[in-house]
Design a protein around this nucleic acid. Structure first.
Ligand SMILES: [Mn+2]
Ligand SMILES: [Mn+2]
Ligand SMILES: [Mn+2]
Ligand SMILES: [Mn+2]
Lengths: 221, 221
DNA sequence: AAATAAATTTAGACAAATCTAAAACATAAT
DNA sequence: ATTATGTTTTAGATTTGTCTAAATTTATTT
């Protein structure tokens, strides 16, 4: 696998993520995600196509090629391994690692990342519950539901976070919710879909529908 | 301390190192060190001057300003801490870490590097025996002499390496010489200043003058 | 003191990544 | 089917860092 510029890697990663959630990716989506201008995106799309990382016809939308997907997955692997390192070894909070990993993910040495993986004990997920692709780009999605779909009375363990903005992560931290935290849904208010949930089998707190939709849990059955 | 481009950081670091050894730095020196062209160096010198990182008058030579020196020392701090991490935690050989650290040194987070420092136990020197500047850019030079100046019969512990090219490091590795290795000079051949030295109080090997001049040791008295 | 050589700088060009403003295209509304 | 709206692309600039070739300055010989 060749080396690509940090900028190209960021585009590939963004397109990969947008493909996941939306299916179809638009120029505006990418511009928005990368805080840049649509014209700049079009410029880059042409370059990525020229390098066969992207399937793209003007005005007709685009998606990653096999190769583009492969590259994106390796960047994501690096991003998540570094995040794990920052939280587990350097004791960063899970809400402060994303930005730093955004830089570290572009360090090119393959050997470095494989040795880091080993040093960390081959973790399966990053500090936000997202799966870490292996050396070949393979990873397994965990089956999970958001809090709104966890039946009242049932308990689950937090396994992932949708919206990972610093604001969201700060809110969760305040309510003492992190990866692995046990949560039981006590009540759903039909009025606004806000929830009362029991955290760590202890305190009961209220969260909005927006929050509930972005906290994923694993549970039996 | 602002952020500067990787390229500028590389120039500052190179100039700092060249100042150490030569005293006076020339455009050609820098071009040679950074594998670039003299014209490119001149271009960059002007930019560094404009940012007050360099004292520079055309044709009259140049040197780092106080601020330039400060920035250079922080890059060197990062470079050496990462090298230490790679060798001590990820088990890289000391001859394979330089290139990777050359990239890692440009990661900008100050908090990251201070936490890394703590995680590593505040090491004083990198895997090549070079001192690691602290958060304020301070560091202490160890008193050391090269092998040619170690009296015959005396023993010393390897504390630093001058020429750190991969070729040199590979040679030392082969002869089982690394940081901390005890060495005793058995004989100096007047003909070519080659040495016979006893390594680790065990095997006796021969090294050339060139090698001897680039291996530094600490010894009593 | 000239002449020659070497080092340094300038002039002009180029690639990568970005931008603004305008044009082209696609979609939705009337 | 026209018109209006929004999206995407082009045209033309700009910034950063680099290069080659030529000009300038400094250093070294004769
Ligand atoms: Mn990034
Ligand atoms: Mn993450
Ligand atoms: Mn570097
Ligand atoms: Mn070193």
């Amino acid at each position: 696998m060749q080396k690509y510029s940090s900028s190209k890697e960021n585009y590939l990663k963004a397109i990969f993520h947008l493909q996941k959630s939306d299916g179809v990716v638009t120029t505006n989506d990418v511009a928005n995600e990368l805080q840049t201008r649509p014209a700049s995106v079009t410029d880059m799309l042409k370059k990525l196509k020229a390098q066969k990382l992207l399937i793209y016809e003007r005005y007709k939308g685009f998606k990653l090629s096999q190769e583009g997907r492969k590259v994106a997955l390796q960047i994501i692997r690096k991003h998540r391994l570094w995040e794990y390192f920052l939280v587990e070894k350097l004791e960063f909070g899970w809400d402060e690692v994303h930005e730093i990993a955004e830089e570290l993910e572009h360090i090119s040495s393959k050997k470095l990342i494989d040795k880091l993986d080993e040093f960390l004990g081959f973790p399966k997920t990053d500090p936000h519950g997202d799966p870490i692709p292996d050396s070949q780009g393979k990873f397994t999605l965990v089956k999970q539901v958001d809090l709104l779909h966890l039946p009242v009375g049932k308990s689950g363990d937090v396994s992932g976070i949708g919206d990972q903005s610093p604001e969201m992560l700060e809110l969760l931290k305040h309510k003492q919710i992190s990866l692995g935290t046990r949560i039981e849904v006590k009540k759903v208010f039909a009025f606004d879909n806000s929830l009362e949930i029991k955290v760590r089998n202890q305190n009961v707190v209220t969260v909005s529908e927006h929050v509930a939709k972005n906290v994923f849990v694993k549970y039996d059955e």
